[in-house]
Design a binder for these strands. Structure first.
Length: 544
RNA sequence: GCCUCCGUAGCUCAAUGGAUAGAGCAACUGCCUUCUAAGCAGUAGGUUGUGGGUUCGAAACCCGCCGGAGGCGCCA
């Protein structure tokens, strides 16, 4: 029998009576509001933060092992802003699940084979061998330029003269021949491949370092290519895959039929081309097997563009048919793609915004702001802080939008330093630090801790409440695989701190106990901000 | 044709069945000899695309419609 929420709340209130540590209880609009005694509550929260330090909010160890796969750019291209969204999302998620208590493995999976790779190798070998620039990023970006040029040379054009057509077709033949040699393991082509691939990987490693990402495992598409062929045979033997090669077809999996579904859902997909070569899906199946059997992964998370959601649904369904119970805990964290105001990015046409260019611009903008606002920061530290702030702005702009949302990249928005941004949060951390710095290094003996027995202001109570919510924000973000939850929480915390900062002047507080209690609160806020920023892959500078 | 996601303030976005739907940007009003104003306090801005349904209670769940994006056996 339905009952009005308000009536229930009133009944519960009446039954509770008075409880130790609770000041009073209200039943309002169907809610039961329980008010803690501020002095007890404040002490509990602040003590816990300060005693736990960097571990405040860390969840209890969980038995499952999680692997997060992200950073899967193709080699022989350059790292663009879309890859940055992927990497930042993946890293933040990895930090969150790890902090929530899961043993966590970070995995990169660069695409180092395929026609795009061969195309770059072809033009390099034909026209540019030995002309590569020396700098890591210059060289990586140069490969991307070669790709654009090669694509243009190989593309059929309107109004071609017969000579042009013959030339283009000649190029195409050379490219195919190179692909064939690569596939056959030709020494020269393989050496060329290794050398050029390494240039891309060097650039990738440098970008990951800039983003403070430390991968545990590096998978390469080329390494699962061969093993995945054996998997095709296994799936045929288990009657999961259907071999249509005798009829001149491919090897396919009729997923719906095998699952006994009558309605079309996963459809049918090819796992081996009729010419015997593997596909994206084939390799992902092989890689999943490695993850489950060699790395003992219980939960496998794939941070990949949302356009591949069908691919992953199919892959997970096949893994289930194959008999892997972990298939139930495979999760595709899809994210919307980043486009430009003038349209989609295209590596083919060279219409991309490179991550490095944006990062450089970010540093430049912060540096010019610093000379105007923070003249006291020594020149030697400025560059480092500028990079922390600039990247903080960029990273936060990517994490503060839900992952299923597409983003039209606007550099002025991404590098904004005002309002709901990374620097706003970092600034709260800096302000907390400057109060503590001014107070000097004060430590309190456990039996002489300041006590919160004065009338706390509204701002102090709100700050304490916000700090106390951090551990559950960690758990929620990790359970839902959503860094956005942490991004939102962290902004709220910074916002609460900024308000407190203005309303309460800590160092001018006359009463010594009250001032010391407030200093402890500031220290707790600083710690919580630092912990939260870390989970967002954003640095927490002490000055800015 | 089928599937997935989306539609919330002028713009960009939050809010996963609970209180008066919140932020930022843009606009407007105040606040720097103070722990750095990358900030704070405030004003204004909403029939949550639309029509039904479920519920004590719906932006959220269900059904229809309108509009947008993406995907659907030998690309990745």
């Amino acid at each position: 029998m339905p009952q009005k929420a308000q009536e229930i709340a009133e009944q519960v209130k009446a039954q509770l009576g008075s409880v130790d540590g609770i000041s009073h209880i209200e039943a309002v609009k169907g809610y039961l509001n329980v008010y803690f005694k501020t002095s007890d509550y404040a002490r509990r929260v602040v003590d816990e933060v300060i005693n736990s330090g960097e571990d405040f909010g860390r969840g209890a160890k969980k038995s499952e092992k999680v692997m997060v796969e992200y950073a899967q750019p193709n080699t022989h291209h350059s790292f663009h802003i879309g890859h940055a969204r992927n990497t930042v999302l993946g890293e933040s998620l990895a930090r969150l699940v790890e902090y929530a208590g899961f043993e966590t493995i970070r995995a990169a999976y660069p695409g180092d084979l395929g026609l795009g790779v061969i195309t770059v190798m072809w033009i390099y070998e034909k026209f540019y061998k030995g002309q590569e620039p020396a700098g890591i990023h210059e060289r990586g970006q140069w490969l991307a330029k070669l790709y654009v040029e090669a694509t243009s040379l190989l593309e059929k054009k309107d109004n071609e003269t017969p000579e042009e057509t013959a030339k283009r077709e000649g190029y195409e033949t050379e490219r195919r021949e190179m692909y064939r040699k690569w596939d056959a393991g030709d020494d020269y082509v393989r050496k060329l491949w290794h050398e050029t691939r390494e240039w891309s990987l060097e650039e990738l490693r440098d970008v990951l370092q800039m983003l403070d990402v430390k991968m545990d495992v590096w998978f390469y598409e080329s390494e699962v290519d061969e093993p995945s062929k054996a998997i095709v045979d296994e799936l045929i033997a288990k009657d999961i895959a259907t071999d249509e090669r005798p009829q001149g077809g491919a090897v396919i999996v009729k997923i719906d039929e095998k699952l006994g579904l009558t309605k079309e859902k996963y459809r049918t997909n090819v796992i081996l081309r009729s010419d015997g070569t593997t596909l994206y899906l084939t390799k992902d199946l092989a890689l999943a097997k490695v993850k489950f059997e060699q790395y003992h992964v219980d939960r496998s998370i794939y941070v990949v563009d949302v356009r591949q959601s069908m691919h992953f649904q199919q892959a997970f369904a096949i893994l289930k048919l194959w008999g892997f119970p972990q298939a139930e805990k495979c999760y595709h964290l899809g994210y919307g793609f980043i486009s430009l105001p003038e349209g989609a990015m295209s590596a083919r046409r060279g219409r991309v915004v490179l991550f490095k260019d944006v990062a450089d611009e970010a540093v430049k903008r912060v540096l010019s702001l610093e000379t105007e606002r923070s003249a006291d920061i020594p020149a030697s530290e400025r560059e480092k802080i500028a990079s922390q702030i600039g990247l903080g702005a960029l990273v936060y702009s990517m994490l503060s939008v839900d992952n299923n949302k597409d983003i039209v990249f606007d550099i002025n928005e991404a590098l904004s330093f005002d309002g709901r941004t990374g620097p706003y949060i970092q600034n709260a951390h800096v302000r907390a630090n400057s109060i503590l710095k001014k107070a000097g290094s004060q430590t309190f003996q456990p039996d002489h801790l300041p006590i919160f027995n004065y009338d706390l202001t509204k701002n102090e109570i709100e700050l304490i409440e916000q700090i106390s919510r951090f551990p559950q924000a960690v758990q929620q973000a990790a359970e839902e695989y959503r860094p956005l939850v942490m991004a939102s929480y962290t902004y709220e915390l910074a916002n609460t701190f900024h308000s407190f900062y203005h309303a309460v002047n800590v160092m001018q507080t006359e009463d010594e106990n009250t001032r010391n209690a407030r200093l402890r609160l500031v220290a707790a806020a600083k710690q919580t901000l630092a912990n939260a920023l870390h989970l967002l892959d954003i640095q927490a500078p002490d000055v800015m």
